[in-house]
Structure formats: C-alpha cells, structure tokens
Nucleic acid binder design. Structure first.
Lengths: 235, 235
DNA sequence: CTATAGTTTGAACAACTGGTTAAACCAGGT
DNA sequence: ACCTGGTTTAACCAGTTGTTCAAACTATAG
C-alpha cells in the first residue's frame, strides 16, 4: 500500500486536518501534518529550539514517525524548505503571467509580503537562512532560489529601463539594471530581517520607502501610457 | 580579591593570550578568554550549535567556569553581544568626529564592513540577530543599536539633502531623508545576510551597487566644493 | 479466512545538554 | 603558621536530544 490516501482514521485526535499551508504534493496525511507542524514550530520557536518531540506533539503524532517518514530531523527541515520553495515558485510563475503595469507588480509584491509576514513564512525563511550558514544542504536549497529571485527583479528592472530609454531618458552610468536590481533585492531582504525584530518604529519607515518606489513606478506607468513625445520629453 | 588582574598563571595551557577582539573592559583573563571563545564559536558553528563545553574547550578552561563567571549560557551570549555593541559604539563615535566628505564616509564604512566580514563579526551579528527572534533579552540589546545606526545614517542623509537644497536641487516629494536612510540601512543589512550565504555571484553585484553610491557621493562632494551658482548666497 | 506490506506505537538507547557541588588550589593579610 | 576569599577542578545530576526497534495495528490482496 502506497502512502497515497489517508489511512481511514486510526485513533488520531481530532485535529484541524492540515491547513492549506504546505499541504500539496500528494503526501500522505501524516507526512503533511508533520511538515506543517515543523513549519509552525519554526515560525514560533525558531530553528535553535526545534526538536522532533515538540513537532510530533504539535502534529498529534508519535515522534518516532518523524524518522519513519523523513529519515532524520535534518531531512525534515530540508523538506520544509523544499515545500516553501515549491510554493514560492508557483506563486512567482502565476504573477509572471499577469501582464500588468510596474506599479501593480510592486503593489502585489507588497501584498504577498504582508501575507508572508502574517503567516510566519518570513520568519521561517529567516530562521532557515541563518541556519544555512552552518548547513551546507540547506544553503544549497537557498542559493538557486535567491538567484532566481534576483533574476526576476532584474528582468523587471531591465524592462523598465528599456522603456525609459525609449523615451530618451537615461540613468547615470553606474546605475545599471544589475545595480538597481541589487538595491531592490537586498533592501527587501534587509526589510524582512528588520521587521522580524518587531520594532514598531521601523514599520512606518518601511511603508514610506515602499510607497516612494510605488510612486516612482506609477509615474513611469503613466508616462508609458501617454503617447510618445514628438521630439523630446514633454515634461 | 577582585578579578582585576590575571592570577599569575595557574596550570593553564599555553594558549594565544586572548586576541584583541573583545578584550577591553577590564575583565579578568579567564572571562575574556571565554567571551572570545564564545565569539569564535558563534562565528564558526553558529548559535544553534553553541554549547558551553565546546566554548570552554576552545578557551582552554573548565566548563564549570562559564557558569561561575557568567551565570548562565544565555547570559554569556548576551555579554558577547554587549561587547560587540561597545566595540561598534567606539568605532562609530571615532568616525563621527572625523569631518570628511560624504564619499569618504561611505568608503570608510565599506572598509569597516570588509574587516567585519573577515573577522566573523558580521556572522556573529547575523546569528544573534536571528536568535533574538525568540529571545527577548537579546532583542532588547539589538533594538537600541539598530535605532542608533539608523539615526547615524539619517543624520548623514539629512546633511546631504540640505546641501543639495542649498544648490536648489530637490528630490521628488516621497523621497524624504527618512526614506532614503531606510533604503540605505536595509540594503546594507540585506547585503550582510546575502554575503553570508557565500554566493560568489553576489559579491560583484554588491561591489557595483556600493560603487554606484560612491560615485553619487563623489559627485555631490565635488558640487559642494565648487563655488555656489549665482542667484543665492552659499548655504 | 490468511498473508502481506505499510503504518503506528511505546519503550528504550546512548549521547549530550546546562547547571551544580564539594573539594582543592592559590594568593595575600594577620 | 593560620585564615580568608576568590578561583579552578573533576565528578556528578537531572533532563533533553535524535534515533532505533520489536511488537502491534490496519487495510488490502489472494
């Protein structure tokens, strides 16, 4: 019998049957519950305090099952990150398809971020990010994602700069698309780690900074929507 | 007998007598060695793997001494962060006094960063930053430092913007000094966490981004050095 | 029914954790 | 000499850690 469908019931406590979180990819119910509990534990207690017994208790499952379904605690953590990566990839491609303006893309990214912050996703990512400093396997899961993420940003920035050049506007030489994309990517990452410190003073500043970019992009969208100027910029 | 001076010798192994690292503040030799070993352990193995016995072995002392000199492992970690804070404060005020151009300030910050990366300081800071997500005492040590750091940046940005305004140049409304300072601070923080992932691809991009700001500031410095355009008095 | 294969359980293991303790050590003061 | 108070040591404690294992359970196939 493969572990496709849930095994009728067993004497399992009546738990909220696995939230939508990382529930995809045809895992058995137990496996999903463990993954989900591990995620929640990472989000609430952090990586340093992570241990299989608490995870099992949260999942409502015997703790030996963790080594049965995942071969070790380390492997479980890696699969948590894997699931997170799958989820991000799906969202990313979904966003890619939608052909909207730059400002709207930015706004959607902000909405996603708010969700991720509230759901604990940002926290888990930060915990595993730090853990990956001393965990090669974990780091190797992060690197391609970071690179892919930067590539997305770079693509959007390139698009924007080319549009600007079509309007005969150009940024100073050192500000290449790569540089601007780097600014955005690392700013965002820094914002995540800063937000997790939960300094209320920061929140307002972050919103203001995000708003400023939003304003910039709205201006860009407007200019792109207007008819091309005859000879030189009109404004 | 206070723990002011080193106790002659004892049968201590011939260890490299406490590197310059966090050695200040009149601690006894043993205390300093433990602090130093804890720092090195954090920099090499990370917070999650930190334990008193390894620290003691690294310091060449009995592990019971950690609970004798610091009252607990948690307290030791806090004092490591305290020492780091003291060090940063000293450097910061030293840099404050030196009245140089904006570009030179930026360049010095970059040099400091390179040192901190090589010495493991950035790594330790990142480890403790993440640990502070679930450690109130640690977080309370971070918050004032982060706030102070941002204040420094904000001060410099304000200065620059005022100088620009003296030259009748003005940024678009949403780009206040606070917003720009926020961009810089979070970009820098993100860069630290990204560098710790050790993706070689990133390094070049970071350098290019830092160079771009450098270029901007050199232009600003040059403009400020040049005579004021007619129409209004200087600053 | 029985056989079979996947799943679950409770108990156990050995290693490791932070912390404590009594005794020893080591100076200086009297 | 003795006492004193800070320091160091080895042994120890109780609790936690990840992991293993044989036995029990469950559902399906023959």
């Amino acid at each position: 019998m493969r572990s496709g469908k849930p095994p009728a019931n067993g004497a399992r406590a009546a738990r909220p049957a696995s939230p939508p979180w990382l529930a995809d990819a045809g895992f058995g119910e137990t496996k999903t519950r463990i993954l989900d509990a591990a995620f929640r534990r990472l989000a609430s207690e952090g990586y340093a305090a992570l241990n299989v017994r608490d995870i099992a208790r949260d999942a409502g499952v015997n703790h030996a099952l963790i080594n049965y379904h995942f071969s070790s605690k380390d492997q479980l953590v890696i699969e948590v990150l894997d699931a997170a990566n799958r989820r991000l990839l799906a969202r990313q491609t979904a966003m890619y398809e939608r052909p909207v303006g730059f400002a709207e893309k930015w706004a959607e990214a902000r909405r996603f971020y708010e969700d991720d912050l509230a759901s604990g996703f940002v926290r888990v990512q930060a915990e595993l990010w730090a853990a990956s400093f001393s965990n090669r396997a974990l780091r190797e899961k992060f690197l391609p994602r970071v690179l892919a993420w930067k590539k997305i940003i770079l693509g959007a920035v390139r698009e924007a700069l080319e549009a600007l050049e079509g309007r005969r506007q150009k940024l100073p030489a050192p500000f290449t698309a790569e540089v601007i994309a780097c600014f955005i990517a690392e700013f965002w990452l820094g914002m995540e780690f800063a937000d997790l410190l939960e300094a209320k003073e920061e929140d307002a500043q972050h919103r203001a900074a995000l708003d400023a970019v939003q304003w910039l992009l709205e201006g860009l969208d407007a200019r792109l929507a207007a008819p091309v100027p005859r000879r030189r910029k009109r404004k």
